[in-house]
């Protein structure tokens, strides 16, 4: 968790350099934070000593952040929209982070590849 701020700075720096507008940069900052928090809390169940690989790809049409881990896979089938009033019943989870990511990003893809989990967060440039 203590590296989250570093990760956010990394993404903000690159999204700013790629000349995305401020609101898009802030959307990426939050989406990446939520995705990495999910990896730490769910894929790795809060246990320290694991890796998270973050790759940024910038091209003329879009900005992509790929986050990889080798923890417990995210079960997309079990995902449901969060019930906000019920969120107080649980310390974590409830799908709020995933809901925020999906609303902020233009495209969100989950993949399982070579025993690794991958989530790709994509935002397209305004034409």
């Amino acid at each position: 968790m203590r590296y989250l701020q570093m990760v956010r700075r990394f993404v903000v720096q690159h999204a700013t350099m790629a000349q995305f507008p401020e609101d898009a940069v802030e959307a990426f900052e939050l989406a990446v934070d939520e995705a990495c928090t999910n990896v730490i809390e769910h894929a790795y169940e809060g246990r320290p000593g694991h890796w998270v690989d973050i790759t940024i790809t910038v091209d003329p049409t879009r900005f992509t952040v790929r986050i990889c881990d080798d923890g417990k896979p995210f079960d997309l089938a079990s995902y449901t929209e969060p019930d906000v009033p019920a969120l107080t019943q649980q310390r974590q989870g409830g799908g709020l982070g995933v809901h925020i990511i999906r609303r902020l990003m233009d495209q969100v893809e989950y993949r399982k590849r070579d025993g690794r989990n991958e989530i790709c967060l994509v935002m397209y440039r305004a034409q």
Binding site: D33, E34, T37, L87, T88, G97
Partner: peptide
């Protein structure tokens, strides 16, 4: 400048 869902949840709990 920044709040994530974990912080928002604390506010929801306090409101309740």
């Amino acid at each position: 400048g920044f709040i994530s869902s974990a912080g928002m949840r604390v506010l929801l709990l306090a409101a309740k």
